[in-house]
Simulated assay, not measured.
Amino acid sequence: MTATLIWILVVLVAVGLYLSWTAGRLDRLHARIDAARAALDAQLLRRASVAQELATSGVLDPAASMVLYEATHAARQAEEELREVAESELSQALRAVFADPPQVDALREAPGGEETAHEL
């Protein structure tokens, strides 16, 4: 009877240690996910800010400026659940603007344009 009680205690301690170890791993994973999400949100906001500066700079034609401004505004105002969609729409707007070689040339020739183009 005593041997059975000892084995039950050993199993309970082993299960408790395993659950504690697993909980620690899950906690560290959660912290890394939160840090990655915060970094991605910061990058989205930084990218949207640079794109918004470009849209309001007057370097681009009015239609491209409006498309880019609307995408940047949506990206900056997007709720957490919709950030992925906003990032995708901002990328599409940037691809549309940078698909026109004369606009890219005009951007690169503007003061600070080369750095802005590289950053975007």
Score class of each variant (00 low, 15 high):
31 A>P: 03
16 G>D: 05
73 H>P: 02
82 L>C: 02
79 E>L: 03
31 A>C: 07
15 V>L: 15
42 A>Y: 02
58 G>P: 02
113 G>A: 06
52 Q>A: 11
119 E>R: 14
57 S>L: 02
11 V>P: 03
12 L>Q: 04
117 A>D: 09
116 T>W: 07
11 V>L: 15
120 L>R: 14
101 P>V: 08
95 R>F: 07
80 E>C: 10
15 V>E: 09
71 A>W: 02
96 A>W: 04
120 L>T: 08
69 Y>R: 13
32 R>H: 11
10 V>Q: 05
5 L>I: 07
26 L>N: 15
65 S>T: 14
11 V>S: 10
19 L>R: 01
63 A>R: 06
56 T>N: 08
38 A>E: 14
58 G>R: 01
103 Q>R: 07
76 R>E: 12
84 E>Q: 07
116 T>L: 09
93 A>I: 02
1 M>W: 08
55 A>P: 00
64 A>C: 13
67 V>P: 00
70 E>F: 04
19 L>C: 03
85 V>D: 14
29 L>P: 14
47 R>Y: 02
33 I>E: 15
3 A>P: 14
72 T>P: 04
78 A>P: 07
22 T>D: 12
46 R>H: 10
50 V>A: 15
92 Q>T: 09
14 A>H: 03
18 Y>V: 12
1 M>S: 12
33 I>S: 09
42 A>Q: 06
44 L>G: 05
73 H>Y: 15
86 A>P: 01
105 D>A: 08
72 T>N: 04
36 A>G: 11
37 R>C: 09
81 E>T: 14
52 Q>G: 10
14 A>I: 05
102 P>T: 15
104 V>K: 01
30 H>R: 15
38 A>D: 15
78 A>N: 06
61 D>I: 03
32 R>G: 08
96 A>C: 06
108 R>Q: 07
108 R>A: 09
41 D>L: 06
29 L>M: 13
96 A>D: 04
85 V>I: 12
45 L>C: 03
83 R>A: 06
103 Q>H: 03
111 P>L: 01
25 R>N: 10
63 A>Q: 11
110 A>L: 07
66 M>Q: 09
34 D>Q: 11
56 T>S: 06
35 A>H: 12
53 E>M: 15
63 A>P: 10
112 G>V: 05
7 W>E: 12
36 A>D: 11
51 A>K: 03
87 E>Y: 01
68 L>R: 01
54 L>I: 01
51 A>I: 04
88 S>H: 12
67 V>C: 04
71 A>S: 07
17 L>R: 11
6 I>R: 12
34 D>P: 01
70 E>M: 12
51 A>T: 07
23 A>W: 06
16 G>W: 09
6 I>V: 11
76 R>L: 10
94 L>W: 00
18 Y>M: 13
58 G>W: 00
71 A>N: 04
71 A>M: 07
91 S>C: 01
59 V>S: 01
38 A>M: 14
43 Q>Y: 08
115 E>A: 10
114 E>I: 14
22 T>G: 04
65 S>M: 02
80 E>P: 04
45 L>R: 09
29 L>A: 14
86 A>D: 01
61 D>V: 02
39 A>D: 15
39 A>N: 13
70 E>R: 12
60 L>M: 08
101 P>G: 08
